[in-house]
Design a protein around this nucleic acid. Structure first.
Length: 264
DNA sequence: AAAGCCCGCTCCCTTACTTCA
DNA sequence: CCTGAAGTAAGGGAGCGGGCT
C-alpha cells in the first residue's frame, strides 16, 4: 500500500483512528480497546524477535550463557520460581491449582540465597514463538485460551496474561509511531499545498488588479480552479442553473495527496 | 426498573531486572 | 569491568462492563 493509497482512502479515517491522542486513548479504554485501529501489521518478524530473545542458559552458578539449542521447557522450574509477585488472579484456576501456585510462590520467595529480590523470568525462544503465534491469532485471550496456553507453555496463566498485556502495549506503541510518521507526512503535504495555494491566490489577485474594470466580476460569483483553470464548480447539466459562474453547491473535499487543487 | 456492590478484565504507568554495545 | 540504553516481565491502580442482590 503506497502513501497515495493510504491517503486517498483514509486521511479522515486515519486521523479518527489515531490511537495516541488523549481522546482516543480515553475512547479506547472506554470501549475496552476494541476500537478499530489502522490495519497495519506490526508483528515483529520471527528472526528479529529471536535475535532479541537470544536464549540464555543458566548454569549451576546462576551465570547465563547463550544456548540456541535450548528447548521449550528449559526454564520450567525457573519459570515457575522466578516470579515471586503476589498472585492476584488465580481464581480461574481450580482451587487445588491455586494452592499449588501459592506453595510454589512461597518456595520461590525463599529461594536459594534466601533473598526476596525480584528475579526476572526470561522466556525461551520456543515459548516466545508460541506466544507470538498465539498473539497473531488473537491479541486477547479468553480464560480458556489463557489456561490452555499456560499449560502448553508450562507457565502460570498470570504470566501468559502479562505477556499478552505487554505485547499489546508494544504493538500499540509501534502503531503510535507509525501513526505519528503518517501524520507528519500529511502535515508536510498540507503545508506544501497551503503554500502553493497561497501563491496561486497571490497570482490571482495580481491578475485581477491587472484586468480592466468591466472584467472584474464579483469574486464571490467566480469559482475557477487555479490549477486546471476550469471555471465553475459543476459540469454543465449538473447545475440547475447551468451557470458556470456560480459557487459549487457541493463542497470539494481536498485530498492532500492529489496534485489537483482543492477547487477540483 | 434502578441502585449499589463485587468480580473480572484491560489499560496505563511504573519498577526491577537482563542484555548488549 | 563499568555504564547507559533498550527490552521486557511483573506490580499496582483505575476504569469499565456484566452479573447479582
Amino acid at each position: 500500500m503506497g502513501v497515495d493509497d493510504l491517503c486517498n482512502t483514509s486521511l479522515v479515517l486515519g486521523l479518527s483512528n489515531f490511537s495516541s491522542t488523549v481522546e482516543s486513548k480515553k475512547l479506547a479504554q472506554k470501549f475496552d480497546g476494541k476500537i478499530s485501529e489502522p490495519s497495519l501489521t506490526l508483528s515483529l518478524s520471527g528472526e528479529t524477535y529471536d535475535q532479541i530473545h537470544m536464549v540464555k542458559k543458566v548454569d549451576s552458578n546462576n551465570k547465563v550463557f547463550n544456548d540456541p539449542s535450548t528447548d521449550l521447557y528449559r526454564q520450567d522450574s525457573a519459570a515457575s520460581s522466578f516470579s515471586n509477585g503476589s498472585v492476584k488472579r488465580e481464581r480461574e484456576i481450580g482451587s487445588e491449582e491455586v494452592e499449588l501456585e501459592k506453595v510454589l510462590s512461597r518456595i520461590s520467595d525463599e529461594d536459594e540465597d534466601g533473598s526476596n529480590g525480584r528475579k526476572k523470568l526470561r522466556l525461551t525462544k520456543a515459548q516466545s514463538a508460541l506466544l507470538e503465534e498465539s498473539f497473531k491469532q488473537h491479541s486477547t485471550l479468553n480464560p480458556k485460551q489463557k489456561q490452555d496456553l499456560a499449560r502448553d507453555l508450562k507457565l502460570r496463566p498470570r504470566q501468559v496474561e502479562v505477556w499478552f498485556q505487554n505485547r499489546r502495549a508494544r504493538t500499540k506503541l509501534k502503531q503510535t509511531e507509525v501513526d505519528c510518521e503518517f501524520l507528519k507526512k500529511c502535515c508536510e503535504t498540507l503545508t506544501e499545498e497551503n503554500r502553493r495555494l497561497q501563491k496561486e491566490l497571490q497570482e490571482l489577485k495580481a491578475l485581477k488588479l491587472a484586468q480592466p474594470l468591466y472584467m472584474q466580476l464579483p469574486a464571490a460569483t467566480l469559482s475557477m480552479c487555479p490549477s486546471c483553470e476550469r471555471i465553475g464548480g459543476a459540469a454543465v447539466g449538473e447545475n440547475k442553473s447551468n451557470n458556470p459562474f456560480t459557487i459549487p453547491t457541493k463542497p470539494c473535499y481536498y485530498n492532500p495527496f492529489n496534485n489537483q487543487s482543492a477547487a477540483c
